[in-house]
């Protein structure tokens, strides 16, 4: 689809401005489908360069309590995968490159898989529909490149970004394998642990970024734990992108029942973080 932007454009723009990109995450459907669209648009307006939209899943093993709570409410509110794609379409229309972050089964099962059929064409259908909604690609926290053959083929066919994760525990061989299979950027998880805002960022992140950079020209985003502009500045000093999730979600959770106040706080947090990535 014409007009669709991959995330590399946003990273290049930030690099040209001599700063890191700000990557913001919210789960679709929290507090409602329309509420999440409004919130994500506020994040774009206030300075997020790239948007990650979480696809709520019943068994989110990588998520801490904050994101779990919001995703669970989205599921209880009846969110469907097609609604997630509607959120993607609305956010991508702002021009900000928009990725979906998702556990694997909802993609493999997209559109309902037929019983006892081994060809999992849900992956292919999802790639097609994501591309036509204007989505830039997928971040896959529980899918590593060695298990991702079907997704890699579908992403390549539909010109989508493939964002895989590296971790402090990754061996050099696995970092090389992961960056070779990635497109868009590489997601470096800064701590060994689940998602969640932390008061100090991890000293594992710097060495991981360094090891990752040795294998690739791709931009490297650092995530897990960032909650304010100072932490963002600290990470922006050595990474190409600063990824923030739980802190945005927490802000909305803290203003539950008052979306306007939540959006105002979200705008303030985004501006603080956007300032952080600019003062490294």
């Amino acid at each position: 689809m014409s007009g669709r932007t991959g995330v590399s454009t946003a990273f290049e723009k930030a690099r040209a401005e001599g700063r890191a990109a700000l990557v913001g995450y919210l789960p679709a459907g929290y507090p409602t489908v329309d509420g999440s669209i409004e919130a994500l648009k506020v994040m774009v307006e206030a300075g997020c360069d790239v948007i990650e939209i979480g696809l709520p899943y019943s068994d989110p093993v990588m998520d801490g309590p904050t994101i779990q709570a919001a995703a669970q409410q989205a599921l209880e509110g009846g969110i469907r995968t097609k609604d997630v794609l509607r959120v993607v379409e609305a956010v991508a229309a702002t021009g900000a490159p928009t990725l979906v972050m998702t556990y694997w089964n909802p993609i493999e099962h997209y559109g309902g898989a037929s019983r006892r059929i081994d060809g999992h064409s849900g992956v292919e259908r999802f790639a097609r529909d994501l591309a036509s909604a204007g989505g830039a690609g997928l971040i896959t926290p529980d899918l590593t490149p060695d298990s991702a053959g079907e997704w890699i083929a579908a992403a390549d066919e539909h010109d989508l970004d493939k964002v895989f994760l590296v971790a402090p525990s990754s061996t050099p061989e696995r970092i090389a394998l992961t960056t070779a299979a990635s497109r868009g950027f590489v997601y470096a998880t800064a701590v060994m642990g689940v998602t969640g805002a932390r008061t100090t960022t991890s000293d594992l992140a710097g060495p991981l970024v360094e090891r990752t950079r040795a294998t690739t020209e791709l931009p490297i985003g650092v995530g897990l734990g960032v909650s304010n502009g100072d932490q963002a500045a600290e990470i922006a000093a050595y990474a190409d992108g600063v990824i923030v999730g739980s802190a945005f979600v927490r802000t909305l959770l803290d203003h539950e029942g008052d979306l306007d106040a939540g959006l105002a706080a979200l705008r303030a947090l985004t501006e603080d973080l956007a300032g952080g990535v600019r003062r490294a």
């Binding site: 068994d59 995968t81 089964n105 493999e108 099962h109 559109g111 309902g112 898989a113």
Partner: peptide, 21 residues
Amino acid sequence: GDAGVLHGARTYVLQDEDGQT
């Protein structure tokens, strides 16, 4: 159930049309 991925393995899973357990 239907073929799907749960807790790290592809196997039969009780899941809805969207792959939610």
